[in-house]
């Protein structure tokens, strides 16, 4: 692998400085490492970058993904069945960052505990990863994880939900680095015809709690939806729509096509609303 600076929180800070400067939202694409297979997932992630994703969320496949809908569940099961290991996930991060991309890992927490939190944070930074999104870790349990990520210089990224009261948003935002992940709707991952009306309200509450960039995920699949979210959020996260294409006949080319559409979407948003709510 080529020489490369270790990933760090500042990679994410720089990204959002750029996108804010350009008056647009960042586009974040998710795919589980190892889906449809290990080289295939790396090719799809490069296609996401080529199409215009600003950040890749590399999924660490888990046996019991309670916050994922059927598309991503099935992809993770297939990745595990193909023998994907944590080392493969880290190598996949490295393939993204070696190609000049930015990467964070999305992982349920038990694999991190088994691997060793400090070791995981250190090895991820060495692979060029900038942060870790942990959907089933709440800040109340996370002190040791905050220490481990701080030591490695990478960003711990936590989720808030429409059900989170203001005091928990403040608590969660206070522990997050890089950006805050706002789950736009109550529910599991999967595309939806409409972005939940709870999303703008949640982002607005996040704005009251933090200056951190706020990324919105869960359910996005079209450029119009991306544009709508980009109107009030700092990043649009797309998962299931990419995963569905990655395993389909179109493969990487179809993924690049969707990324290009969504990248147009995040640049065509009416941002006047955000100026007033920010």
């Amino acid at each position: 692998m080529s020489e490369r600076a270790p990933g760090s929180t500042s990679v994410l800070d720089d990204l959002f400085a750029v996108t804010r400067g350009e008056g647009r939202a960042a586009l974040v694409g998710y795919l589980p490492a190892g889906y449809p297979d290990i080289p295939g997932s790396q090719a799809v992630m490069r296609a996401m970058l080529d199409g215009g994703c600003d950040l890749i969320e590399v999924g660490l496949p888990f046996s019991d993904p309670v916050l994922d809908g059927q598309v991503i569940q099935a992809a993770q099961q297939r990745a595990l069945a193909a023998g994907t290991r944590i080392a493969d996930v880290l190598r996949t991060v490295e393939s993204v960052t070696s190609a000049g991309g930015r990467a964070v890992v999305m992982t349920y927490f038990n694999p991190v505990l088994a691997y060793g939190p400090e070791r995981f944070a250190r090895d991820l930074a060495a692979a060029g990863g900038s942060g870790v999104i942990t959907p089933d870790l709440i800040v109340d349990e996370a002190q040791f994880w905050l220490d481990a990520t701080e030591g490695a210089g990478i960003a711990p990224i936590f989720l808030v939900a429409p059900s989170s009261p203001m005091d928990r948003i403040v608590l969660t935002a206070g522990a997050s680095r890089g950006f805050l992940y706002a789950a736009s709707t109550m529910g599991v991952t999967g595309t939806r015809d409409q972005v939940a009306s709870s999303a703008p309200e949640l982002v607005s509450r996040c704005r009251q709690a933090t200056d951190l960039p706020v990324a919105v995920g869960l359910g996005v699949r079209t450029a119009d939806q991306a544009a709508e979210i980009a109107g009030y959020a700092d990043a649009v996260i797309v998962g299931s729509a990419f995963v569905a294409l990655a395993g389909g006949p179109g493969g990487a080319a179809a993924v690049a096509g969707l990324a290009a559409e969504l990248a147009t979407g995040v640049r065509s948003a009416d941002r006047t609303h955000q100026e007033t709510s920010a």
Binding site: I138, D140, S163, R168, A183
Partner: peptide
Amino acid sequence: ARGYFGSMGGRWLPEALVAA
């Protein structure tokens, strides 16, 4: 108060369920 029996228990699940 955090739901621990010694070192066991707690809340290891999505933030979305904490309010419930």
